[in-house]
Design a binder for these strands. Structure first.
Lengths: 170, 170
DNA sequence: TATTGTTATACTCTATAACTATA
DNA sequence: TATAGTTATAGAGTATAACAATA
């Protein structure tokens, strides 16, 4: 296998560094924006592949999780909790309905209450088990302690963004 | 302004929780995949907006940073360092050439060495200053110490992914 | 035979605007 | 007037396949 991966190097900000070896990401190594976006791609190619075995996408997996945990909520509430717009959540709801993973019960004549079906609970359970397996692969590089450190920091950012009106929400 | 944001809650995994208040993200609160993807969207809407004032996109900003730091490298090396595919880097290179932010010098008759132009250095400098300003908004919720904690953890994941052949690279 | 840059193409995700109907 | 769901559409970003020129 000749992947010929050009190594990268993380270093502190400073002066240019022309060389012949691995490339240097420079200030990007300290940029939350860059690191998050890069890891996002990294994770999602792998994570999506695992979920695809269950007919799931990252968003359907997340949606089923939230619906199970918060039965009877409105479509727009679930979308909002997930941080996606109502308008972009419609197709996902349609998909989950079509696959019989959720039910919709009318609240009034313009809104629905979402519930997980037995089938939905089943895929979710199977996929969640798989998710743990996938995350365990990452645990090879991140100890449980560091993982909870990381998730705590990430949650803090999300929580701050929900209350700070100067930070764009989506 | 009536944004009518439905609050969310982060809690430990466990039993369902039907209520009438804020929604619960359940196990998603401990999922690196979910948290990273959500923050990715959050950051990028804001970050992209700030960069757009300079005619930059996140990828062009990152590319200029790497080219400045590693002058004379091949297009494919820069793409690889950034974790994007050669094929998807072409348009970005074209854009940077057209805006006179970089120069291309032939290495042999099939590859080019990339260098930052004066104009490229100028936008990069201006945008980097703006970047610091944007990150300072985040520092409202994340102390400098926590920020470097976070970037260190994120770097660790990226580094592990570059050496672990079982983890998809892009 | 492998590398470098390229084109074409399709698919996903997201953002915006506008519409219907209901409250 | 505001809310809930929907449709249509456009723009990024990314993935795959295939190709030409060169090493």
């Amino acid at each position: 296998m000749s992947l010929v991966k050009t190594d990268i190097v993380h270093s502190a900000p400073g002066i240019p560094k022309p060389r012949g070896g691995p490339l240097d990401l420079g200030d990007l190594s300290n940029s939350i924006e860059y690191l998050v976006s890069r890891i996002h791609r990294l994770i999602f190619t792998g994570f999506s592949t695992h979920l695809a075995a269950f007919g799931l996408r990252p968003l359907t997996f997340a949606a089923l999780t939230v619906i199970e945990r918060n039965p009877g909520r409105k479509q727009s509430e679930v979308a909002d909790a997930l941080g996606v717009q109502r308008t972009n959540f419609v197709a996902t709801v349609d998909e989950m309905l079509q696959k019989l993973w959720i039910d919709r019960a009318p609240i009034d004549r313009r809104s629905y209450a979402l519930h997980l079906s037995e089938g939905g609970a089943a895929v979710l359970k199977a996929a969640a088990a798989e998710r743990v397996k996938v995350e365990n692969e990452w645990d090879l590089s991140l100890s449980p302690a560091k993982k909870s450190e990381l998730t705590a920091l990430l949650r803090q950012i999300i929580e701050a963004s929900s209350s700070d009106p100067t930070i764009p929400r989506r």
